[in-house]
């Protein structure tokens, strides 16, 4: 495939086209990804997550500077939500990174969540492979905001930083309930605002409570992305943390875990599709529902009837082969 050559040579247009291919989930993507896969595994993948308005994009913008100062090639995937009603999306994260648009060593791509069935992670995880194969040293994934996707970013990234800012009371309370565990590193952005020190103390307290190993607590860093303050410290901590992950062997464990999850997800997805087709759910569901509504059939009787029909068809398939 010509596309693959272009990507391996680091050309922008083929790279961008290939990402559309995986986003649109076109069938050609499978061959593309399998051919690129041997070339992956070199990039460091960072996840950046946190509530909307915490300043994630501005922070990423500043991290790009630091990475570029090391002559690293950087790719960013910035995810925004799709409208559940129209499927449309307004992707505005790159606005804050736009000054890098003319740097040929920086690649920024906005992605819409496109809703359901793990849509984010699916398009995104293949996009990461493409960028990795294209030779980017660092790939940064910026997520939508707090929610389910934040958990998924853990499956995608080698290292996750959670960005918070003072004055977002409710969101942060919600975070403490679960999302806290996913951060390898915490950033309190907008440190000039009142309450930043207090927030830092709170986070450290919660981390302390939930940790079995108080020696190895994730760092909590005060920063102001807008004023470029605290970015150097953050960036250094990031690099140290990454080195730790590599040395301790934890990185390869994470990556294996990631492959495991990804494979199961894809297999289940494909099986689901196959099943869907086999029992012709979409064609028959109206009719089945009608029967149950009219009480001609009971719900579980109906379900088991269909499952048995399906099993029988599968056995027929087997005997044919």
């Amino acid at each position: 495939m010509k596309l693959i050559q272009g990507i391996l040579q680091g050309k922008v247009r083929p790279l961008a086209k290939a990402i559309s291919l995986v986003e649109d989930n076109l069938i050609d993507k499978e061959e593309l990804i399998d051919q690129l896969y041997p070339h992956t595994g070199k990039a460091a993948i960072w996840g950046v997550t946190g509530p909307p308005g915490a300043g994630k994009s501005t922070l990423v913008d500043k991290l790009i500077d630091r990475e570029r100062s090391q002559d690293h090639r950087v790719a960013v995937i910035a995810i925004d939500p799709s409208s559940p009603f129209t499927g449309g999306a307004l992707l505005g994260d790159r606005l804050r990174m736009q000054r890098h648009s003319l740097d040929p060593q920086v690649f920024i791509r906005s992605m819409a969540s496109r809703g359901h069935l793990g849509g984010v992670s699916w398009g995104c995880s293949d996009a990461i492979k493409i960028l990795d194969a294209a030779g980017f040293n660092t790939i940064i994934i910026e997520t939508i905001g707090v929610g389910q996707t934040e958990i998924e970013v853990v499956e995608l990234a080698d290292l996750v930083m959670l960005v918070l800012a003072p004055g977002m009371g409710d969101e942060i309370q919600a975070m403490k309930a679960g999302v806290m565990e996913i951060g390898d590193l915490f950033v309190i952005n907008k440190k000039d605002l009142p309450g930043s020190e207090k927030l830092k103390a709170e986070i450290e307290y919660v981390l302390n409570l939930s940790s079995d190993n108080p020696e190895q607590l994730p760092p909590v860093i005060l920063a102001s992305a807008q004023k470029s303050e605290g970015i150097d410290e953050l960036w250094k901590k990031l690099s140290t943390k990454y080195q730790q992950l590599v040395k301790s062997g934890y990185l390869s464990a994470r990556r294996k875990e990631r492959i495991k999850k990804e494979l199961s997800r894809i297999i289940l997805y494909k099986v689901h599709h196959l099943l869907d087709k086999k029992i012709a759910l979409q064609d028959n569901i109206d009719n089945w529902a009608e029967q149950v509504y009219l009480k001609k059939d009971m719900p579980y009787t109906m379900v088991n009837k269909q499952i048995n029909r399906f099993k029988k068809e599968m056995r027929l398939d087997d005997s044919k082969n």
Partner: peptide
Amino acid sequence: GYEVIYTGLRQTPESIVQTAIQE
């Protein structure tokens, strides 16, 4: 129903074109 990327103000033709290609 479209996916729309917005650049913000003061974009040079060069940066618009690079953005269009990357996106």
